[in-house]
Computed example of a mutant assay.
Amino acid sequence: MKAEKINKYIEYGTTKLKVLYKEKRFKSEGYTIKYMLEKNDSDSLIVVLSGIPRQGLKARYNYGRTLSKIKANKLFILDDFGYDQRGAWYLGKNKDFKIKEATHKLIKKVKKDLNIENTIYCGSSKGGYNALMFGLEDKGSTIIAGGPQYYLGERLTNGVYPTYTLPYIMGENYNDEDIQVLNDLLPNIVKKSKENDCKIFLHYSDQEYMYDTHVRYLVKDLHDNEINFVEDVHKYKKHAEIAYHFPKFLVKSLNKILS
C-alpha cells in the first residue's frame, strides 16, 4: 500500500506539470471544457473522465502517469465545474445538461480528427459513473469503470456532496422529482444500450458501502439487460482505497483490450 500511495503523489505532481503545456480548451453549448490530448500512432482512443477530489481541492486530471506506457491516443477531460470546482458529473448547471452535450461533441470531434476505430472510456468512482454514462451511449465502445455510483440523486443527497453539487446541477430550488431524475439517469442509459454492443470491465469491492447502495444494482441491471461485462471483485473496506487498486486493473484491462 505504501508504494501505491507514493505513486499517487508522483502522479499528482507530474500531472500538474503536464497541465502547464498540454491543457487545451473546447467551447460549446455555453461551456468551456478543459482537456489534454496525447496522440499516438493508433486507431484507439482512451477517454479518461475525472473523479471528484476530497473537499477543499479542485478537480484534477486522473491516471496520466498510470497510462504513460499505454500506446494509444488518450483524451483526458476535466470536470472542474460546480460552485466549488470539484465537478458537476459532466452534466450541467440548473438542469440544462449542456456540459454533457459539450463533452459528447469534444469526444466526437477528437474521434473524427484522429480516425478512431476503437474508443475506451475509463474512470473510477465519479469517473466510473461518467465512463458508463458516455461509453454506453457510444456504440461498440469499451468501458473500464471502478466503484461507480449508480443512483446519482441518492449519492448527492447522502451527506457527502449536497452543499454545493446538487444545487449547481439541478438548481437551488431542486425537489424530490429532480433527485429522481438523477437517480434514473444512468439506469435509463443502461436499459437503452442493450443493442449498442458495448463491453464493460467493472472493478469494485463488495465490502465497502458503495457496493450495497449502488454497484450491486448496476450489476443486476447489466445482467438483466444482457450487457457484456466482466468483474474484478476485491475486499477492501473503504471506498477511497479504490485509488490504490483500480490503476492496476485499468492497465491490465487496457493491455488486454489493445493487444
Rank of each mutant, 00 (worst) to 15 (best):
Y168S: 05
I10P: 02
V215I: 15
Y151M: 10
D197W: 00
C122I: 05
A145N: 03
R54W: 08
K71V: 08
K5Q: 11
D176H: 04
E208I: 00
K191F: 06
F76S: 12
I116M: 01
I107S: 01
I169R: 09
Y244C: 06
H104W: 08
M133R: 12
F249T: 08
G135E: 01
K58N: 11
A88N: 11
N188R: 02
G87I: 06
Y244E: 13
A145H: 04
E226A: 14
V190D: 13
E154W: 07
L182Y: 00
S141P: 10
I120A: 07
L254T: 02
E231A: 02
V230Q: 11
E29R: 12
L186K: 08
V160W: 12
G140N: 13
Y129T: 06
E208G: 03
N130V: 05
K237T: 08
N115D: 13
H223M: 10
K34V: 01
D206G: 04
K39M: 11
H234Q: 13
S253Q: 11
E101D: 15
N130C: 14
K238S: 04
N73Q: 01
K18C: 09
P53S: 02
L218S: 05
A243L: 10
N40Y: 09
I46M: 02
K5C: 13
K18V: 10
E172C: 05
Y209A: 08
T15F: 03
